[in-house]
Design a protein around this nucleic acid. Structure first.
Lengths: 225, 225
DNA sequence: GTGGGTGGTTAAGAGTCGGTTAAGGTAGTG
DNA sequence: CACTACCTTAACCGACTCTTAACCACCCAC
């Protein structure tokens, strides 16, 4: 699922945006001031960061600058009121990827968010754990350099596990991530896990896909932790 | 249910906030001075702590600092009057997660509390007492660095004990926390406590799981308290 | 001493969970 | 239409887990 960070001091606006994005299947995190936003952006992965220019404490441009200096390449979409547009527009060269003038259409916002996320994934999107690599762009998975063949659903299972590795993912969360709201009945997940094991672990000596009894699964090499 | 600790010397304000939060289904605990607040925060589990900066006895920033030094990672929301705004920046270096300038809207407060609680649940979470560590994300428990194997129910028992350590938890509260409303008959809890002891204490010289006769159990090293 | 309450220990049956396999159905493709 | 790939479902088995009941040990009041 796509994850977006909203840094905005107008809580009503933030809430509206967040609710709309959630409807589109985009998960949102929220900070009401610059420092909190910066810390969140540093500490977590986001597909896109939504940044208000005018913020209490630490303004959007400074946040942007600081993130870029650290090598953080998360796409940033600036939001600005019309009357602040003039003097700030040159500052957009600071590493901002796009901007939007308030008030804006939510539909337009989502379109740009998705475009930004897509653009980034066109650059380099690689999930990795141990000798297991998933290239979301090229859409292939390798273990130890050797390509693996995965069906679409199994792919999604592995992707969510990789995004959390080496943490555990509960069965509920896994089903939610793979199927969304319309879950399959029965034991579909069990079968896909089985197939995933067959593809990822069976040909190799060390197993990466661990079962956490009574809870879920984790991608983790046996003797770690 | 979500639990929030309010540390605030203005009783009227605290009361107003507490009543509003209760309406939203958030359970509140309350301290009117810094020391009481610090002790409550140390001894109990909270989803979020609401901290006034200006407090008699022990100010909010010091409380925040002390909690962080102990490894307590409960999200902290600072409340500050407008004329103390400068302190805010300082607060963020102490480990504050968000702040709010008085007077504030109750609606905004609840929104931020919920955001903080949601965020925490998505990131690293470690429960610790003595040499016992429970990583809720990786979903493993270690004592003295050595991994322990726990069944799901025993896990839940240990988790609630850890959240309250080193305070005692009554048998009723423990059953409530583990089974919710549908309690098992008979002496199921006794058996799980026994199994928990076998896993956590048996291989080690000092016992952590203490029985409080006539009341319940506590996680606490023998000679403490 | 006796009896009842409390807590610790053990074992057994019922039930659940995870792994595995196979069958049926659907969609896409040539 | 035939073929393939894939997903869901059902069924089965072994392992594990939970509950339950029974027994034991202890403390305390009577």
């Amino acid at each position: 699922m796509m994850k977006v960070l909203i840094v905005e001091d107008d809580i009503d606006l933030a809430k509206t945006v967040a609710e709309y994005l959630e409807l589109e299947g985009i998960s949102c995190d929220y900070a009401s001031n610059g420092l909190a936003g910066l810390n969140l952006a540093k500490g977590n992965y986001f597909d896109v960061i939504l940044l208000d220019i005018n913020l209490p404490g630490l303004d959007g441009l400074s946040i942007c600058q600081q993130l870029r200096e650290e090598g953080n390449d998360t796409p940033i979409l600036m939001m600005t009121a019309l009357d602040q547009l003039d003097d700030k527009i040159e500052g957009f060269q600071m590493g901002t990827d796009d901007y939007l003038v308030k008030p804006f259409e939510l539909k337009e916002l989502t379109a740009r968010i998705k475009a930004l996320a897509r653009r980034r994934s066109g650059q380099a999107q690689l999930l990795r754990y141990n000798d297991l690599e998933m290239d979301l762009n090229a859409r292939n998975v390798t273990r130890g350099g050797q390509a693996l063949k995965l069906s679409p659903t199994v792919w999604r299972v592995l992707e969510t596990l990789l995004r959390h590795a080496p943490n555990a993912v509960s069965k509920d969360a896994l089903e939610q991530a793979v199927w969304g709201d319309e879950l399959p009945g029965s034991n579909s997940l069990k079968v896909h896990i089985f197939n995933l094991r067959k593809a990822v672990d069976a040909p190799y000596s060390i197993a990466l896909l661990q079962t956490i009894p009574g809870h879920g699964f984790a991608l983790r090499s046996e003797h770690e932790n």
